[in-house]
Amino acid sequence: MSALKTTLTGYAGYRGREGHWSFLLHRITGLGTGLFLTIHILDIAFVYLAPNLFMDAIKLYQSTLFGIGEIGLVFCVFFHGVNGLRIAYIDMFKPAAWTITKQRNWTRTTLIIALILWLPATFVMVRNLLIHNFGLFGG
């Protein structure tokens, strides 16, 4: 079995606990954030290289699909950031906290913190989307 096939089989098929799912979510949110940063660097480059394309990119970002994508992006940033801090803190300063019970609790807490940070941002973003893209709330 190739390494890629083994990895994907493991990612999707291994029945790990919180740590496994947290690892996968960390990967996915990292890829999501990385993808956004790549696109963002490209569109900012358009300001100098092709101003017309930059305006097209801005128009595209204002579309409903991108609006929904941005809501996902904010979750990616919050989860990846909070989870990264958790891992760095325990790994560097509190190795003794890597016990099964504590790790499961910390992982769940991390997700809850990320959701708490994400929900207000989501509220504002969904509201803006409804106002500007669907003409609701007097938009």
Binding site: Y14, G16, R17, E18, G19, H20, S22, F23, I87, I90, D91, P95, A96, W98, T99, I100, Q103
Partner: peptide, 20 residues
């Protein structure tokens, strides 16, 4: 730090802690 190792260890060794 995916922690699968510690969860899987049949001897309940705190593997992730040892690695850290």
């Amino acid at each position: 730090t995916a922690f699968n190792c510690t969860e899987a260890c049949p001897r309940e060794i705190k593997i992730t802690q040892a690695i850290a």
